[in-house]
């Protein structure tokens, strides 16, 4: 069913490096993914795995220097975003692609009213007049579930709670009916009960507005709940990618498997001891020439330390970047 939909965003072999004083940091390495209209793609990974940098690279939101996109194609709606002019890109940002940031505390401007901040993209991108923008802003606030919207437009961000502020952020991102919404850990700073409210809201808005969403998170629980497809990132690469039910029922990459095993369960038998992943996440100070997960991997093969695995399709909708196959004996297996 989903195959019938048009691909709206197609990223191929994206590579972003940071040229810092202490040397190069290879933050995003050869990342490819695509997004269809109306779909929700979850991107999971630990901090430093390149999730956010990938998304910011798409819209050139990273300061350059030090950041530099060295390779890759970003096709959005028939245009190659790497080649469009700054003016045109500015129209895409906040217009056709909305962005929700992690921390609602710091991403709203404290000296402007919330109304002003919601109206800003409306007036710039959609050319609405002041009055029309105000009416639309109130509608948006209502849409994200803030009561008494017209009056609250005059309030400043500090007059809102954390959950409410995140709703304002969502309202701003939705202001111009974006085709794609990129949400960078939008619920990480929130409590579980507020997170549940926001997840519910996003599900509802998806139905109503039919936009495509990229949802970045480190919480596998959240992904299981809302995503259609999931990509798992490690050390700046996508190591596994599949439909959500497939990924959770049949994880193939040792990292995905280990991640799922380390999570304590909310029900059922209580484990005596948590399974942990030994070692530390890798430094990104070199180009990946071997599998970056190999030093922590339970199933490491000699090939893993010599060659970086490419993503190979297991089924048309499930691919994994790993030399090991489930059932195969690794060198540490015993």
């Amino acid at each position: 069913m989903q195959d019938a939909r048009a691909t709206i965003l197609d990223v191929a072999n994206l590579t972003t490096v940071f040229n810092t004083r202490d040397g190069m940091v290879y933050a995003v390495n050869n990342v490819s993914f695509s997004l269809k209209a109306g779909e929700l793609l979850g991107i999971v990974g630990e901090s430093g795995s390149g999730k956010s940098v990938t998304m910011m690279s798409l819209l050139k939101l990273l300061p350059s220097p030090p950041a530099e996109i060295t390779n890759g194609d970003i096709w959005f709606n028939g245009r190659q975003l790497r080649e469009v002019s700054d003016d045109e890109l500015r129209k895409v940002r906040g217009g056709e692609i909305g962005f929700i940031f992690q921390d609602p505390m710091t991403s709203l401007n404290p000296v402007f009213t919330v109304g002003f901040q919601i109206m800003e993209p409306l007036r710039l991108h959609m050319g609405l007049g002041k009055k029309a923008a105000r009416i639309r802003a109130a509608e948006l606030l209502e849409l994200v579930g803030i009561p008494d919207a017209m009056a609250r437009l005059r309030d400043y961000p500090h007059q809102f709670s954390g959950g409410m502020r995140q709703r304002v952020m969502i309202a701003i991102a939705l202001a111009c009916d974006p085709k794609v919404l990129i949400a960078d850990e939008p619920t990480t700073a929130l409590d579980v009960t507020i997170q549940a409210q926001i997840l519910e809201l996003i599900k509802e808005l998806r139905h109503k507005l039919g936009m495509a969403i990229i949802w970045i998170t480190h919480d596998l629980g959240v992904v299981a709940e809302i995503a259609d497809r999931v990509a798992v990132m490690y050390a700046g690469q996508i190591v596994e990618h599949a439909q959500v039910s497939e990924l959770f029922s049949n994880p193939l990459h040792p990292y995905t498997r280990a991640l799922l095993e380390t999570l304590p369960q909310m029900g059922g038998e209580r484990a005596q001891r948590l399974r942990s992943i030994d070692g530390q996440p890798p430094n990104l100070d070199h180009e990946p020439v071997s599998c970056e997960f190999a030093p922590r991997c339970k199933h490491v093969l000699s090939r893993c330390t010599q060659e970086n695995p490419k993503r190979r399709a297991v089924t048309p909708e499930h691919d994994v970047a790993c030399w090991w196959q489930p059932g195969q004996e690794g060198e540490k297996d015993a």
């Binding site: 009960t193 997170q195 549940a196 409210q197 997840l199 596998l220 629980g221 299981a224 959770f248 909310m266």
Partner: peptide
Amino acid sequence: ALLSAVPHPDPAQAGGVDRIILKGDV
């Protein structure tokens, strides 16, 4: 409500949970 708000890392279960969504903030 607190327990039901925790997302399950299992898509099969996620649909079946009767979630209690609390209104408003603390």
